[in-house]
Simulated scan of single mutants.
Amino acid sequence: MKIMDGHCDALTKLYVNPKLDFEKEDQELDVSYPRLKHAGVKVQCFAIYLSDSIQQPTFDHILQMVDIFHRKIVSHSGIRFIQNVQDWHEVEAGDQIGAILTLEGVDALAGNLTHLRILYHLGVRSIGLTWNYANWAADGVMEPRKGGFTRKGKLMLRELETMGIIADVSHLSTAAFWELVEGYNKPFIASHSNAQKICPHPRNLSDDQIKAIIQCQGQIGLTFVPYFVDSVNLAVSIPGLLKHIDHVCSLGGERQIGFGSDFDGIEQWIKGLRHAGQYENLIEALCKNYNETQVEAFLFGNWRNFMLTNLPK
Results as ranks from 00 to 15, higher is better:
84 N>Y: 00
196 Q>D: 03
199 C>E: 12
19 K>W: 03
33 Y>V: 01
34 P>E: 13
39 A>I: 09
259 F>A: 02
142 M>A: 07
164 G>H: 14
85 V>K: 08
262 D>N: 03
268 Q>N: 04
229 V>H: 12
50 L>I: 07
191 S>G: 14
280 E>T: 09
224 F>G: 06
152 K>I: 14
143 E>T: 14
155 L>G: 08
150 T>M: 05
106 V>S: 15
52 D>A: 11
303 W>L: 11
238 I>R: 13
264 D>W: 12
104 E>A: 00
192 H>P: 04
196 Q>Y: 02
253 G>L: 09
194 N>T: 10
92 E>N: 13
99 A>T: 09
268 Q>R: 11
253 G>D: 10
80 R>Y: 15
3 I>N: 02
206 S>R: 06
116 L>H: 15
17 N>T: 05
242 L>H: 02
221 G>S: 03
141 V>I: 10
197 K>F: 05
226 P>Q: 05
229 V>A: 09
2 K>H: 14
93 A>C: 10
109 L>S: 12
183 G>E: 00
223 T>F: 01
158 R>D: 05
59 F>D: 13
161 E>F: 00
145 R>D: 14
123 G>R: 04
97 I>F: 03
277 G>F: 03
16 V>M: 04
260 G>M: 13
217 Q>F: 11
51 S>M: 15
139 D>R: 05
242 L>E: 06
261 S>C: 01
286 L>E: 08
223 T>V: 04
199 C>Y: 08
195 A>Y: 10
261 S>I: 10
